[in-house]
Write a protein that binds this DNA or RNA. Structure first.
Lengths: 210, 210
DNA sequence: GACTGTGAAGCCATTCACAGCT
DNA sequence: AGCTGTGAATGGCTTCACAGTC
């Protein structure tokens, strides 16, 4: 594979394109141009073409892109041609909400285990899953060959939980704890701190009103 | 104010620094260097200094930064010297979890209203708030002078909800719906699509295993 | 000696503009 | 004529390296 470095922003946009294409496909649209995609998702046409060009030539000059075809390609690129088993650690409000979040299933993410160390939570049912103690992480990860973990525990135990996930063989972590965690080089982490996202907004509001 | 353009990545890091500084302050650390901050949050020392330099000279050459002082400055820059009233639209699992999420309160975000149009949800209590119909948005936003809205409704109604928020005078929106929404130029939007975040990870996993 | 603040350099992502195909 | 694919130009963020200060 051409291992040329791809900007992360390109991947984020690809995810957006793929959802836009799903909608277009549902509406029965067969062919679409970079300009129409750009218009729909709020970027420039050149950006759309450049993003796609990292991965191949999917369009026809003078015509545009075949919607179904391009959709299939984008999903494939994102690794969404198949199911991913995911485990969630932290069965509080946020963790529970993520377990029942439909948007994950729609994109091929299957949550196969929820863990917590709070005895009042263990045994509780969330959708069709029973909350387990963290000592079961290893077993469940192996059993389902899960590669992705979601962390929604408090800051104080986030690193411990991450260590358990890494030891169990998890390769990618989505971290909701508002703290920086360390992992070996072969594990990917993305932080998703909710308060930080609001703080970007308050910063912007502060600038405008001054 | 010097309206020099600040990279958004700088703001995100500033949020991270401020939390790191809170921890350092709690541990009784009085003075800290850019190198120590960098080490703690996983960026380069030069990056830390450059980020801070956008906003002033907060350190002492040969010494470093006073922790309490720098913490106060970073919070101020982020607009966190005070409370922000926030409304949430969408009282499903995710919306409910966000209403009870402590990380918001800790950073000065006060959720003052939860709305939904699902009759089975209206009247339900989430923490200390009663879910209201969306026709009450205008009134609640005015009453609390809320400037920030969080959207956790399905894609199909996201744009309608955003329109209501904008009409009510909301100035900044955190959008969890996996679709692109449009707003006037004077309203800030940040998208926080949860599946997209996982897709960045699956893309990375795909690259590595090929 | 240690560490900040900053201009300059380097690097990466986006935009431009046009050649190439239908 | 219309639209893609892409090298070149631009713009912006990060890193470097050092002058300035304690």
């Amino acid at each position: 594979m051409k291992a040329l470095k791809i900007p992360e922003a390109t991947i984020v946009r690809l995810s957006v394109y793929s959802r836009f294409l799903e909608q277009a496909d549902k509406r029965g649209i067969v062919t679409i141009s970079s300009g129409e995609i750009a218009e729909g998702v709020g970027v420039s046409p050149a950006q759309v073409r450049k993003d796609l060009a990292y991965f191949g030539e999917f369009g026809t000059r003078g015509v545009g892109y075949n919607v179904k075809d391009l959709l299939r390609h984008t999903l494939k690129i994102l690794g969404l041609n198949g199911k991913w088993s995911v485990v969630v650690v932290g069965a509080g409000n946020l963790g529970s909400a993520l377990v029942s979040y439909r948007g994950f299933r729609e994109r091929g993410f299957d949550i196969v285990g929820v863990f917590d160390n709070d005895l009042t939570k263990i045994g509780k049912r969330i959708v069709n899953l029973e909350v387990m103690g963290t000592e079961k992480i290893q077993q469940v990860v192996k059993e389902h060959d899960a590669k992705i973990g979601i962390v929604t525990v408090p800051t104080s135990v986030a690193q411990d939980v991450v260590n358990l996930l890494v030891k169990a063989g998890i390769r990618a972590i989505l971290n909701f704890a508002p703290t920086v965690i360390s992992v070996p080089d072969n594990v990917e982490v993305r932080d998703m701190d909710l308060a930080t996202r609001l703080e970007i907004l308050t910063f912007q509001l502060g600038i405008k009103d001054s």
